[in-house]
Simulated assay, not measured.
Amino acid sequence: MTGYSRSTRSPRGEARRRELLELVTEDLAANGLVDFSLRRAARAAGTTHKVLLYHFDNADDLLLQAVLRLRDRRVVAGLAAARESGGDSLAARIRALWPVLADERARVLDQAIGLAMYDPARYAALGREASQQYLPHLVALCPEHWSARRKQEVAELVLATLRGFLIDARTGGDSASDSAGFDALVRALEREEAADE
């Protein structure tokens, strides 16, 4: 029986689980993945590691849940920026989305992708879940009249390209080159949309 199923037997147990997850998520957002452990998470949550194991399967499960929570926040903020940009084009929406994705406060999410690359046997879900969280939203930003296949292809191109820019930026890449590359992506999206006219 997993920790999650034990804690969901009651509304009180589920509320406690959400409270603990929120505290651990805040610690992760502030301190990143370096030295993340069940004991560190317990200190951040003001509890013991045994209590965390009652509510979560293990440290990896807790880490995944906290990362997903942080990604949800970034997705919501990014979509709000894209929709509030005033731009009707996909290119304008991606231009508005990029500063949210590149914000230094989201560094821990890019570290999570690094973990997925470093130890895929253990952390593959961190990478896989990232795509599952972002792709539907990127698809939704595409022009409505595009076919489902075209939306999916363009969304995957945008996601892979932006992820590459983030990795480069986080690993000490050349910001001028990243900016030029991003501008090239935006121009490619503009051409893709202009092909409809």
Rank of each mutant, 00 (worst) to 15 (best):
G3K: 00
G3W: 03
Y4D: 11
S5N: 14
R6T: 06
R12S: 12
G13C: 05
R17P: 00
R17Y: 06
L20G: 02
L23E: 07
T25F: 02
E26V: 11
E26A: 09
A30L: 10
L33N: 07
L33K: 06
L33V: 09
S37I: 07
A42P: 00
R43S: 04
T47V: 10
H49K: 13
V51D: 04
V51G: 00
L53A: 03
L53K: 09
H55D: 02
F56W: 04
D57M: 09
D61E: 05
L63V: 10
R69M: 11
R71T: 03
D72W: 07
D72R: 15
R73F: 07
R73C: 09
V75W: 05
A82W: 07
E84A: 12
E84S: 14
G86I: 13
S89C: 03
L90Y: 03
A92H: 12
A92C: 09
R93G: 04
R93W: 07
R95G: 05
L97S: 06
L97I: 06
W98I: 06
W98G: 01
P99W: 08
V100C: 06
D103W: 06
E104Q: 14
R105Q: 14
D110W: 15
Q111F: 02
I113A: 09
Y123Q: 03
L126F: 08
L126R: 01
G127C: 06
S131R: 15
Q132F: 13
Q133H: 15
Q133A: 12
P136Q: 09
L138I: 11
V139Y: 05
P143D: 03
E144V: 12
H145R: 13
S147K: 03
R149D: 14
R150P: 00
E153G: 05
A155L: 05
E156A: 14
E156K: 06
L159P: 01
A160N: 10
R163F: 08
R163T: 13
F165Y: 15
L166I: 03
T171S: 12
D174Y: 06
S175H: 12
S175R: 13
A176P: 00
G181W: 04
V186W: 01
L189E: 02
E190T: 15
R191A: 08
A195M: 08
E197T: 11
E197M: 10
